[in-house]
Computed example of a mutant assay.
Amino acid sequence: MTAPSTEVLRVTRLSAGYGPLTVLHDLDFTVHAGERIGLVGLNGHGKSTLFRAISGLTDWQRGSIQLSGHEIGGTRSQGAGRNTHRIVRLGLAHMPQGDAIFPGLSVAQHLDCGAYTRQAWRERMQRRDAVLKIFPPLSKLLDAPVGKLSGGERRMVSLARGLMVDAVLYLVDEPSLGLAPKISRGVMDALMRVDLRGGAMVIAEQNMSLLEGRCNRILGMHAGQLKGSA
């Protein structure tokens, strides 16, 4: 598959970490409109840190991060999360590793939480219908407390919540983590049904077989560096 030329994300000489620990080392990374990119690597090698740096959630970072031409990176040494709400409004949707749920809230309430921008909130009912077409099992669970759902159902809720806005870049971190192989394939198939609408998606995974044949590119991450065509 040939990638379109419009850049959604450009990362240049990005270093980032936590406290005294450097996790990412002068990393360069470009994502084009329409792409689905797989990011493969073992735990502790920087996949989640890359996503957190793009979202402004690391303890410190330096280097350029441009989202649709807007600079969201630069040098930052404190205040993790201080600018994340602005980055989200520019079109970022970050689905973090694990379920990331509120156990006492219903499925419907979780989806509403994802309608963060003003336009998404006004259109939340229509957007909910669209998301439920991607994750049909949730249609019968809208009133159920998420804490009582199965692992696969909770993962679907977490991902569906992130799809409630029209993002230009979706960052999906370890969607198959802790799930049975059949459920993992179903979750990945659902992500392939997402209409990117000129945006892009980056999926971090340890299981390369879930990404092969589904992504435009698969990159490896090792010791804070990307391997392959970034």
Rank of each mutant, 00 (worst) to 15 (best):
T2E: 13
P4Q: 14
P4F: 04
T6W: 06
E7Y: 00
L9A: 03
R10C: 04
R13M: 02
L14K: 05
L14I: 06
G17T: 00
Y18V: 09
L21Q: 10
L21M: 10
L24F: 02
H25V: 07
H25R: 15
D28M: 10
T30R: 11
V31W: 04
V31M: 03
H32W: 02
A33C: 07
A33T: 12
G34M: 08
E35A: 11
E35W: 06
E35N: 08
R36K: 15
R36F: 09
V40M: 10
G46K: 05
S48Y: 01
S48E: 04
T49N: 03
T49K: 05
R52I: 00
R52T: 03
A53T: 02
I54E: 00
I54S: 01
G56Q: 03
D59Y: 00
W60F: 08
Q61P: 06
G63H: 04
S64G: 07
S64F: 04
L67N: 01
L67Q: 01
H70Y: 05
E71S: 03
E71T: 02
I72R: 06
G73Y: 02
G74A: 01
G74D: 05
T75S: 05
G81I: 01
R82C: 01
R82E: 01
R82Y: 00
R86N: 03
V88K: 02
L90M: 07
L90E: 01
L92T: 02
L92H: 04
A93H: 02
A93C: 07
H94N: 06
M95T: 10
P96E: 04
Q97V: 00
Q97E: 13
D99G: 14
A100P: 01
P103S: 06
A108W: 01
Q109C: 03
H110K: 12
H110E: 11
H110A: 12
D112W: 07
A115F: 07
Y116W: 10
T117M: 03
W121L: 11
M125F: 11
R128V: 08
A130W: 03
F135R: 12
P136R: 15
S139I: 07
S139K: 14
D143W: 00
D143E: 13
P145G: 13
P145S: 13
V146C: 12
V146H: 12
K148W: 04
S150I: 13
G151P: 09
G152F: 11
G152A: 09
G152Q: 12
G152T: 11
E153S: 13
R155F: 05
V157M: 13
L163C: 09
L163I: 08
L169T: 02
L171M: 05
V172I: 15
P175V: 11
L179A: 09
L179T: 10
A180T: 13
A180N: 14
P181Y: 10
I183S: 12
V187W: 14
V187T: 13
V187P: 12
M188I: 14
D189F: 02
D189G: 11
L191F: 12
L191Y: 12
M192G: 15
R193I: 02
G198A: 09
G199I: 08
M201W: 08
E205R: 14
M208P: 06
M208A: 15
E212C: 07
G213R: 05
C215E: 11
R217Y: 02
R217C: 07
L219H: 09
G224D: 02
Q225G: 11
K227R: 15
K227Q: 14
A230N: 14
A230Y: 08
